[in-house]
Amino acid sequence: MSTLAATAPPIWAADPAPAGTLPTSHGITTLPVLDLITGRARTGAYGPDPAALRIALAFSTVQAVRHGGRARGYRNEVLSLRLGAAVGSCAVEPGELPADTVTDCVGASVADLLDHPCGAVRVAALDAYLGHCLPHAPAYGARRYGLPSGSSLTKSRVRASAVVGLLPLAAVRRVLVVGVVNSLLEQLRSHEVGYLPCDLKGGHTEWDEPVHTDALAHLGDCDAILASGMTLGNGTLDPLLAHARATGKPLVLFAQTGSSILPRLLGDGVTGVSAEPYPFFWLDGGPSILHLYGGAAR
């Protein structure tokens, strides 16, 4: 368990449960993760008052890629907000952000953005705030993992090795992969670990395997979960987290979205996090860094 996980307030909420809480099979109720951590931020649990901090820079990044030798490509769009040295990010579906979102965020206080009607803004603002207050460092349980310079595919494969290494591979038979990244599936295949690929977009993997669109329907068919940070941004993380808490199954998150938020869940259902704040590996051919939390020591 990381230093922070040992000292942070517990994620469980006391009964009676307020509106919007999620039941677990333990009979304990929890607030949705984003609401709970946002509430803590507002009360100073992590550092300064969000009302006293303002976002100086907001931007969006749009990417399309098809790696050499791969049959399929994909697109990304990410909203990012800068607070001091920290950049908070949330991925969205391409074209989903309203045109004035970026300009709306500039100069606004973090507290105001935590109430913004756009969910991606709320996630990016909380991510920037926590990155500012609790930077990725050994004092908070982070381990630096260097990615080498090289092509996007080279870096993707090295990142995948680090992420999959957070799973207890010797004890895992089948992994539910939520948010399909072919390099991660390739790593699981190399370890002869089975997987169930799930993504809201559906489609097929690089090996022409069907991608399931309902991850929750397959929770009973896995003994570990590997999920993208995008599950935080699109609201699908909470049932995965509830299942991991109830069953004790390993839950590892690979996060560009919410990379400073998700380490706060270590020890409360999450067993490992690969945190990758902006700039992401696919933006630069030079060396870059992941921050690993929990999982197996590397």
Rank of each mutant, 00 (worst) to 15 (best):
V211C: 04
V178G: 08
A242I: 13
V211W: 02
A215W: 05
A8L: 13
I225L: 13
G131Q: 06
L153W: 05
P287R: 11
R144Y: 04
G269P: 10
A13K: 06
V92K: 01
L237W: 07
D115I: 02
E186K: 04
A86T: 01
L262M: 08
Y145S: 15
L97Y: 03
R159N: 10
P23N: 07
V180E: 11
A71N: 03
P197N: 09
P48D: 15
A111M: 01
C118G: 12
L216K: 04
H243L: 02
S259K: 05
V211P: 03
H136S: 01
P48V: 08
V252E: 13
P135F: 04
G39C: 04
D284S: 14
D214G: 06
L176V: 06
H116K: 02
A170Q: 14
G20V: 08
A14D: 14
L241C: 13
R143F: 00
P48I: 05
F254L: 14
T231H: 10
V164D: 04
P16Y: 13
G294N: 05
D49G: 08
P250M: 11
V270N: 07
L126G: 08
V102G: 07
Y129P: 09
V181D: 12
L113D: 03
L166M: 12
S288F: 01
P10T: 14
D35G: 11
E93H: 02
G119F: 00
D268A: 15
W282G: 04
G294K: 07
A124W: 01
